[in-house]
């Protein structure tokens, strides 16, 4: 069976399909994942992917780039995310 072609290894096709790679840090453990995605993927998809990978509830987190909170259904391009950006998953705790 043929192995699926990885666009990230072919710069020309990667540009055509706008594959970009970012890093998402887990602020509570110091771990980080490298993630491949497209400009049209949403912030929610990034949070969901990272939360699922680390077996977390995505609703209990916010994602940040620098001092800015990244929210909801906006696309990566709309949120100004570029290749090699480092985002951080931050807990959103509630005390009672």
């Amino acid at each position: 069976m043929r192995k699926p072609f990885n666009l990230a290894f072919c710069p020309v096709l990667a540009v055509v399909f706008l594959v970009l790679r970012i890093k998402v840090k887990n602020a509570e453990t110091g771990a980080a994942v490298e993630m491949e995605l497209e400009n049209e993927n949403t912030i929610d998809e990034v949070i969901e992917s990272a939360a699922t990978f680390w077996s977390k509830d995505m609703g209990a987190y916010v994602l940040r780039k620098g001092k800015k909170v990244l929210r909801g259904g906006s696309s990566l391009s709309d949120a100004g995310i570029r290749a090699e950006d480092v985002l951080e998953l931050i807990p959103d705790p509630e005390g009672g």
Binding site: T29, G30, V33, E34, L37, S49
Partner: peptide, 14 residues
Amino acid sequence: MPMTRPKIVRETRR
């Protein structure tokens, strides 16, 4: 071409 889901390719642990 349909949009793909984000794909995690590598994890680094401290």
